[in-house]
Computed example of a mutant assay.
Amino acid sequence: MVWTFSLSAECGAEQSAVEQFAHHFNGLSWTLSIGMQSRCQTEIFQDFEDHWWCRVCPDNLSEIGIHAPDIAYSMTELGLLLYQRLRSAPPFRYALVGVEVDEFRTYSELSTEISEASFPGLVLAEKVWQACGAAPSFQPFSPGYVWYPYEGEVYKPLTVSPDLKDKLNELLVLT
């Protein structure tokens, strides 16, 4: 199974809006602090509510999730770069960076869940934020947008190491 790290943004009902958004990111390239080069590719698609999405995928990253601390570090660095670029992006309604964030919530799901759930890194257009109840945990991101600040990507050794899982299971049996 492929685990994709990306920026996913919902741009509303107009295809031209998502095309402009995709153009803003497509082909963008960065050299990370570890010397690795990563180039962005974009993909446009519609959800079942007929809203347009753009997925921005930096290349040269793990496709099996965060299986080591250096992977979490590189993804976090790229996440910060994606958010920096997002500040100057054409209009969108909401966006999130992370592993497997494609269509993380449709607009109708988001509008009913935003007050009870936090999505670190979630960026909302102010109109969407207000329509969703203007949760006070959001902070200014850029003109016209707010966000729940990004916390970076996390390496969790217990989720990727069979040896550590076995040791945990041994502890759980003793309790």
Score class of each variant (00 low, 15 high):
Glu19Cys: 09
Trp53Tyr: 12
Pro149Trp: 02
Gly35Leu: 04
Val128Ala: 02
Thr76Ser: 09
Ala17Asp: 13
Val160Trp: 10
Gly65Leu: 00
Ala22His: 05
Gly27Thr: 04
Glu113Ser: 10
Ile44Leu: 15
Ile66Gln: 06
Leu82Phe: 07
Pro143Leu: 03
Ala131Cys: 12
Ile34Leu: 08
Gln130Ile: 10
Ser6Asn: 07
Ser111Leu: 15
Ser8His: 15
Ile71Pro: 01
His23Val: 07
Met75Cys: 12
Cys54Asp: 02
Ala9Trp: 08
Glu63Asp: 13
Val123Tyr: 12
Pro120Leu: 09
Phe25Gln: 03
Ala9Glu: 05
Asp47Met: 03
Ala17Asn: 12
Asp166Pro: 01
Trp52Phe: 15
Trp147His: 13
Phe104Glu: 00
Tyr94Asn: 01
Tyr73Val: 14
Val146Thr: 02
Tyr83Phe: 15
Asp59Thr: 02
Lys127Tyr: 06
Lys156His: 05
Ala117Gly: 03
Ser108Val: 08
Pro120Gln: 13
Arg93Tyr: 15
Ala13Trp: 11
Ser38His: 06
Glu49Trp: 05
Asp70Arg: 04
Cys132Phe: 04
Pro136Leu: 13
Arg87Ile: 04
Asp102Ile: 14
Pro90Asn: 06
Pro143His: 01
Ser8Gly: 07
Leu122Trp: 01
Ala134Val: 13
Val154His: 08
Ala89Tyr: 06
Gln37Asp: 14
Gly65His: 00
Leu96Asp: 06
Glu151Cys: 14
Leu78Asp: 09
Glu109Ser: 11
Leu96Tyr: 01
Gln130Glu: 14
Phe21Gly: 05
Glu103Tyr: 01
Ile66Ala: 00
Ala9Val: 08
Ala134Leu: 06
Gln41Ala: 14
Ala134Ile: 11
Ser33Lys: 08
Ser74Cys: 15
Trp30Phe: 13
Tyr83Lys: 11
Pro58Asn: 04
Lys167Ser: 14
His24Lys: 00
Thr4Glu: 15
Met75Val: 00
Asp50Tyr: 04
Gly35Phe: 12
Ala117Ser: 13
Ala68Arg: 10
Glu153Ala: 05
Lys156Val: 05
Val123His: 09
Thr76Cys: 00
Ala72Asp: 08
Thr175His: 11
Tyr145Arg: 04
Ile114Tyr: 03
Ile114Cys: 10
Trp3Leu: 10
Glu77Tyr: 10
Ile114Ala: 11
